[in-house]
Design a protein around this nucleic acid. Sequence first.
DNA 1: CAAACTTGTAACAAGAAATGTTACGATCGG
DNA 2: CCGATCGTAACATTTCTTGTTACAAGTTTG
Lengths: 144, 144
Amino acid sequence: MAANSRLTTAVHALAWMALAGRRGREVMTSEEIAASLATNPVIVRRSLGELRAAGLVASRRGAGWSLTREPEAISVLDVHEALGAEPLFALHPSTPNLECPVGQGIRPVLTEVYAAADAAVRRELADRTIADVLARTLASQETT
Amino acid sequence: MAANSRLTTAVHALAWMALAGRRGREVMTSEEIAASLATNPVIVRRSLGELRAAGLVASRRGAGWSLTREPEAISVLDVHEALGAEPLFALHPSTPNLECPVGQGIRPVLTEVYAAADAAVRRELADRTIADVLARTLASQETT
DNA sequence: CAAACTTGTAACAAGAAATGTTACGATCGG
DNA sequence: CCGATCGTAACATTTCTTGTTACAAGTTTG
């Protein structure tokens, strides 16, 4: 259970809110969203709370949650970054031996490699929006 | 301490073995490698054990570890895959509500998005070899 | 052959992160 | 005012990573 499903939770919640909004329900409760995700409302509040800090959604106590932008204007990268986007790979847990030529010089090299991998992920996520995800989700069901 | 530094450990170990090999020391002990990483020899044996299963290194009890390929022929992607390359993002921890249109159709869509991100990372890692990493590591020190 | 060395692996501990749950104060809508 | 809902803390559980000790199995060397 240690894998990162936070992006899945957040994108699913936003897609569901976008669909509801299109149907005229602009405000949803964390309980309604949790029902679609089959999880606890607190999980939703925590997740959407991070998105609110990034300006993607808004909430009001006693009321509920709403999108602050059109679904076309929210990329999956926006969501990823709102969630805190941890680096894919980490450097050494403890400083390597600086007496060793490799230990002394490898960290900037790996940092660059990891940054390139990170940038590649971002490029992919930047290309897709919540509207795209929703459209493709619904399209797969018309076919069925 | 939960971030993934396994790739760092393995690439560092291989680069160090490549440098030693170039100096005429083709076989190294886990203790020597651990000294460069500033960690425990068992960590090295576990890490290199996974690389051995992928055919990147060889070992003999009582003897030590050696590369099975030229450093030019080992990409960082090879190492990443040898370590078990977990997906970057996971789908829902528990099956979403299939009564909901989003819950029903979103999983294949997200699977595709995550696969694209994964492929992008692989493309970046495939471009760099242990020889590259070692060369750049040593180059940074000549400058200093 | 015998002694010293090294791998292979199990067992365990500590720490971190994700998920899920309960609880309850704060705030909004009617 | 009252019920609904958010905001958040506290806690349990699970899983992963790193690190450590221990020891059997095999290799090397004298």
